[in-house]
């Protein structure tokens, strides 16, 4: 039997999100993708269960890259989303920050890093999806490394050619797709 108990949820939920107006703003900016996510079953918030600890994002805004990042020119290596990009920028190759150049194919598989947007100081999840199936573009080559590790933790490595599931694994260029707020 389902029931919706506003009372037991309301107070704690409101307290958690009091002052968190930026969250609403983020969702609006990110568009329908997040808001249209499937509704899912959740635990009733109960004082008996302590909420799981959230990761500490503080150090992310303190790296050399984060301090010098800009938000206006996505063809430059210091654009905020490129905090851990490795390769040619698709924005210089006829594509865009989440767009592959003509004839190239975005890889469904990639790694996801986090970068800090200097405008709001918050961390965002960036999927560094490679565009594949064409020869190397070799323009605007960048190699940044915030929170990037080695290949035995592949989901945090940016040297791997992330072209799994595409017609060809020939690497053309890299995008930086915003996939959520961290």
């Amino acid at each position: 039997m389902i029931h919706f108990d506003a009372d037991s949820l309301g107070e704690k939920v409101l307290r958690r999100f009091a002052g968190g107006t930026s969250r609403r703003g983020i969702l609006a900016r990110l568009g329908t993708a997040l808001v249209a996510a499937p509704l899912f079953p959740v635990l009733p918030v109960s004082r008996a269960n302590a909420a799981p600890a959230k990761p500490d994002r503080g150090p992310e805004a303190k790296t050399t890259f984060a301090r010098g990042a800009q938000v206006t020119d996505n063809t430059k290596c210091d654009y905020w989303r490129y905090c851990a990009i490795d390769g040619a920028l698709c924005t210089c190759c006829g594509g865009g920050v989440h767009t592959c150049p003509p004839g190239a194919e975005p890889s469904p598989v990639s790694w996801v890093g986090t970068c800090v947007n200097p405008e709001d100081g918050k961390s965002y999840l960036i999927a560094y999806r490679d565009c594949c199936g064409k020869s190397y573009c070799n323009k605007c080559n960048c190699d940044n490394a915030d929170r990037e590790t080695q290949i035995y933790v592949p989901q945090l490595n940016n040297d791997i050619i992330w072209c799994f599931g595409t017609q060809s694994m020939e690497y053309h260029c890299s995008t930086a797709v915003l996939v959520g707020a961290a």
């Binding site: 290949i151 592949p154 490595n157 040297d159 791997i160 050619i161 072209c163 799994f164 694994m169 690497y171």
Partner: peptide
């Protein structure tokens, strides 16, 4: 497929075997 790595293709000291690392993923 990754660049700049020394240890994804290694040979046994007796020269008889090569070991190639794969990720598919």
């Amino acid at each position: 497929l990754v660049g700049g790595r020394l240890n994804n293709f290694v040979i046994s000291p007796d020269g008889k075997f090569g070991y190639v690392y794969n990720m598919s993923p």
